[in-house]
Design a protein around this nucleic acid. Structure first.
Lengths: 327, 327
DNA sequence: ACCGTCGCTGCAATCGATTGCAACAACTTT
DNA sequence: AAAGTTGTTGCAATCGATTGCAGCGACGGT
């Protein structure tokens, strides 16, 4: 039922109904209350589309997750659901809906279409993926656009992300402090996040004069498991393994268990992300936490600032080492 | 840039521009091409809101996840991200966007508002949660509404779900066939899905004359872990444990490992869902698979049928036992 | 020369809510 | 009694795209 119908019922104009439901003080209090009661009785729920068109604001925020890359770590990674959950929490708290989209690989103007469709007031991107160029292009003219990911020098778009270099360094320092040598990095060193983690890890190892190896592998559990198993089969037993993500670390744990190698006595394992399951593996996983609660808050905060036309800059969330059993 | 601006540029009316961009054949072919070229040059992207308002259709499907219940299993459960991923895939393939909402606990007409907002063409609900009454109420008059969950006798709304009773039965039969006795169910028996799993489990056990115990606990990893640890501390060692979900099963595995109980030799563990991590725990998890690829396809198929005004009925996805190391 | 047809284009209504401005009644003030 | 003030309501424009109907010029038929 629409406002015009209610107006007819109440014997007033749609203008008055609109104002009454909006709680506008310029309509007589009795009329207002009468209309409100009538609205409740007749299940009046104003059309949001019409409202949004007129108001030129939608009350919705676009959210693009890297769900398109089924072959990578992403789809199965609880990390993203966590982030999604936090973001959804915060946005809904502030009265926004979420328009979820995916990257459509074949249309090169997918981002432009999204921001120009008039359906969203702002956009959150989780992960730059391989769309760096498109993001840069659009961010030049579209302000309310916040990206979770790495901040490369000279880049224009605003990012929130954890300091992956510092995180990698934390991991290496923790292992080295335990007197571990012969370190091993396991993961895909190509994506910027992982590259940074490896860079920090390598820098700390070099600084301490400790040797390390890089075992490059795709991030799927199967691939990680196979790569580590093959590595162990060669008779090379690392004293400590740094996995590029917690999900990868779990595959590492499994491969070690199957090879009869005790964790942490013989080999230490350290993960990255601190997904909620990390505390519940056996042995429980020592890991580098990305504080998503804070990260999500920063993203939403910056986004809504920009939606309101204010200034907002990039930010970095400091990582923290969470000590558990595995290292 | 809007159609009216382009119209001025091209020296025609907005009506002609609209028809040209829509590929309407009543526009002269040369004019049409000229307008299209101009549109591309000037980055014309029509306002979707205005279009949707006029067309009375939005090209968006609402999707409600039970993200509001941070205290339950849901937020951290990869099961939902999987389902979300599949649904998003299918909907985007068919040209729909997704409007993600959360249950707002304090507003009792949240569902009505959503379906009457005019912003979506249909709605997918994942999990009935505690909103059974609201769903029944709305489904009486709003057809394009599909729910992932249990189908209770006499219910009106259309559900897609796996046969949890059969799944529970599969689990029990598998354990009993191994000669295991003193079975234990771990989980929250209140939500309909879990209640059904337990019912099937209990029925099979009763039928075989095997005793079983129910360890009721909230579904959070911490709670499950604590409950199982406390149970074991009492000196009661079950020969087999059926966990209500894979995530719960992982906490069970950890509690058993900490108590020095070998899996599967001393105690077998079987989970539910077959989340992607289940294959990568140590030991890897025997579980009951819910085929989400098929489930999501059924949901989207039924939904779009109803959006098109066609008939569509509930469906059940058969569960399957996936044998791994833990049982 | 007149009429009918055809192809193309524009006018204007429409979707449904919001809001500036004006109208109007009821008072108060002088 | 005239003028000004205040409180309440309605008219009509607006957001931007879509579309039924009408108009208009060109053309062929008689």
């Amino acid at each position: 039922m629409k406002l015009a119908d209610l107006a007819a019922l109440a014997g007033v104009s749609t203008a008055t109904v609109s104002r009454a439901l909006a709680g506008h003080s310029s309509v007589n209090e009795q009329t207002r209350e009468r209309i409100r009661v009538l609205a409740r009785e007749h299940d009046v729920r104003p059309n949001q589309l019409a409202r949004n068109l007129r108001m030129k604001s939608t009350g919705a925020i676009g959210l693009v997750l890297p769900l398109g890359h089924a072959k990578t770590q992403h789809l199965t990674d609880p990390f993203f659901l966590s982030l999604l959950g936090f973001l959804a929490d915060l946005l809904v708290e502030r009265g926004y809906d979420i328009l979820l989209s995916r990257v459509i690989p074949d249309a090169d103007d997918w981002l432009e279409r999204l921001v120009d469709s008039g359906r969203i007031d702002g956009l959150l991107l989780v992960g730059q993926s391989d769309q760096f160029a498109a993001i840069e292009r659009v961010s030049q003219r579209y302000r309310p656009l916040i990206v979770w990911g790495a901040n490369r020098p000279g880049q224009h778009h605003l990012t929130i992300g954890s300091d992956n270099v510092a995180g990698g360094r934390l991991a290496a320092e923790h292992l080295i402090a335990q007197g571990r040598e012969r370190l091993l990095f396991v993961g895909d060193p190509a994506p910027p996040e992982f590259a940074d983690r490896l860079a920090g890890f390598a820098a700390a190892a070099d600084q301490a004069g400790v040797a390390y190896t890089v075992l490059a592998t795709p991030m799927s559990p199967e691939a990680v498991h196979a790569a580590v198993a093959a590595h162990l089969a060669r008779g090379i037993f690392p004293e400590a393994i740094f996995a590029a993500s917690d999900v990868a670390a779990m595959s590492v744990l499994r491969a070690l268990a199957e090879a009869g190698i005790d964790v942490p006595t013989t080999t230490a394992v350290i993960g990255y992300d601190d997904v909620s399951l990390a505390a519940h593996t056996s042995p429980s996983l020592t890991t580098i936490r990305q504080d998503l609660a804070i990260g999500a808050e920063l993203m939403v905060d910056r986004l809504l600032k920009r939606v309101a036309g204010e200034q907002a800059e990039s930010a970095i969330v400091p990582p923290a080492l969470i000590k558990r059993q595995s290292a």
